[in-house]
């Protein structure tokens, strides 16, 4: 039974629960918008990293270079899309 619950994944799960609790601080505690957004950005991206490495096994096999390159490519396009839109449509620059 014990072999079915590898330590790495159990710890990964506990850590992702912890990140969720930390993110909840922005709801339950009073803080400025900047502080709140910083907390959310950190917890969300760390959480995504945990999923990627612990649960999706990225980086365990020989195709890790191609996998990471592809994820970074997707991420760069995503960030350019989001921040480009914010610049043009929201921040009026």
């Amino acid at each position: 039974m014990k072999e079915l619950f590898p330590a790495k994944q159990v710890i990964g799960f506990a850590f992702s629960l912890l990140l969720t609790v930390i993110a909840l601080a922005v709801y339950f505690l009073d803080m400025s918008f900047q502080t709140g957004m910083t907390i959310l950005l950190v917890t969300a991206f760390v959480q995504a990293g945990v999923q990627l490495t612990v649960f999706m096994h990225a980086g365990e096999t020989d195709d890790r270079g191609a996998i990471y390159l592809n994820v970074y490519y997707g991420l760069i396009i995503a960030l350019v899309t989001i921040f480009g839109t914010l610049l043009a449509m929201v921040w009026d620059m």
């Binding site: 191609a66 592809n70 994820v71 995503a78 989001i82 839109t85 914010l86 929201v90």
Partner: peptide
């Protein structure tokens, strides 16, 4: 197959990015 699926997931990241960009707007 696995690498191909990762490429699909890369496209999915971009799909959801457009939705988030629109949401923030």
């Amino acid at each position: 197959n696995i690498l191909g699926f990762w490429i699909f997931l890369g496209a999915e990241i971009m799909l959801f990015a457009t939705l988030f960009a629109t949401y923030f707007t």
